[in-house]
Design a protein around this nucleic acid. Sequence first.
DNA 1: AACAAATACTACTTGCAAGTATTATTTAAT
DNA 2: ATTAAATAATACTTGCAAGTAGTATTTGTT
Lengths: 137, 137
Amino acid sequence: MKLSKTADYSLRILSFMAKKPDELHTAKELVDKLNISDKYLRRLMTKLSKSGFIKSVQGREGGYRFTKPTEQIFVSQIIDAVDGLDKYMGCILGFGACSDDNPCALHKKWALVRTDIMNLFKTTSIAEMAQKDVQKI
Amino acid sequence: MKLSKTADYSLRILSFMAKKPDELHTAKELVDKLNISDKYLRRLMTKLSKSGFIKSVQGREGGYRFTKPTEQIFVSQIIDAVDGLDKYMGCILGFGACSDDNPCALHKKWALVRTDIMNLFKTTSIAEMAQKDVQKI
DNA sequence: AACAAATACTACTTGCAAGTATTATTTAAT
DNA sequence: ATTAAATAATACTTGCAAGTAGTATTTGTT
């Protein structure tokens, strides 16, 4: 049970930026501090900018900055923006048609866990994550 | 939050077989009933045989049969055999070094969920799964 | 106007899970 | 012995996420 690397990176990046939520952060700074491959991070930053969590400032003295208070940005929104939450919230056995009406053999048990996961994602803000140190390995 | 297709397939296959736990099941039967690609399923059956949940009978009139009561085979064991449980039980943010002593920003919250997932896997037997219908889509 | 430092875009490469194809081996029935 | 029906093994192909490379664009500084 993991997130994609793209989602991982997004959370790490935004958590890191949220430690100084009003500053402008360059891609270079983020690459150096977070140990994420340069080109991949830059592409991801463009995607996150388009998703509206941050906005980019182009040109010299450019970078990225939050568009709203980090208390109002939740893990669920970020995962949804980069991967789509559906990717993680589907049937544990991979059945497309699995539902309450047409449950797989693990449906009921898994539905309970999934609700917990959803709640975790929906109630954890980037501001909260920023209070913890972000590891590099 | 999904399992690999390999783990999905394994659970579907063994659950299906467990409906008639004492019979010999051929790969052909399983492919027809479970809608899993032929060659992939056959390779997986060999792996599951080597893992000890089932044993193969070669030659004409051959097939696969459980080696022990399906009440004694748990989801966790199957996932562990085909993928390794570690693949699913690591840090949600993908940090290799994440631990209680060196926690990531989601560690504490995720540890609770992970425990629930583990319990689900460890306490659900193939016999129990076999009581439900196994879907095809 | 020229330069430097930043982001944006497009295309290519790599790695791994999943899927496919072919051939070899085993064994019961005839 | 031969055949048929099953599993086993090996190698190849595909698809997608992740990673890399190079070029274009933007904009402040000089």
